[in-house]
Amino acid sequence: MAAAFLSRPVYPGLALVPQARRHIFALEGAGAGALTDLAPDAGALTRSDILYLPRDPDGAAQAVALAALGAASLWQAPDLAALLSRLAGLLDGARMGTRLYAAGSEGFIGQVLVVAEAAGIDPLSVATEHRGNRARRVQCVHCKTVAEEVTTQPCACPGCGLTLFVRDHYSRRLGAFQGVCIDAEEPGSAPAAEEAFR
């Protein structure tokens, strides 16, 4: 794994804020395990809403495990856009004392934080835990297209087709790493792509 760099977000792991009036858990794929491992007490669960985006291969089993927690509500999202939209709806009109928790892939967490910030939540107050692969969301700095699930270095921009070097520079606002053309100075000199983010 690449060395830490200073714009890289830190995901310290989910820790319950016991005083919270309401807990909202936004979970993706293996991120479900972050909540089941946390095993909140029954009192906290009665104040908890869970939004879950299952991912193969363990999505169904994890959904069962989440349901077994007995939270106030559990909603399974058909896709990411639906989850983010539902989250925005929950946060609209929410009160101080509502605490948000996000667990899953890095790209998922990044997009949950974008929704949170838009709702008036300071991103630093959101508990996050990275579970799952290390694939990166990458914004092409040239055409601004965001590539999802990038696992190679360099990668191809799905928008403009340039070969991008994925920099160790991360934008919380965009929830994405920065991709910069790797062979701009000598077009055609890009090295072959190698698996880098798994």
């Binding site: 760099f5 200073l6 714009s7 914004q139 700095v141 601004k144 920099r167 919380r172 965009l174 920065q178």
Partner: peptide, 17 residues
Amino acid sequence: WSLDFDVGMSFHEWHAP
């Protein structure tokens, strides 16, 4: 450096590179 990418960053974040 890209403002569009760096806007919203803290002091250490935008100096990361």
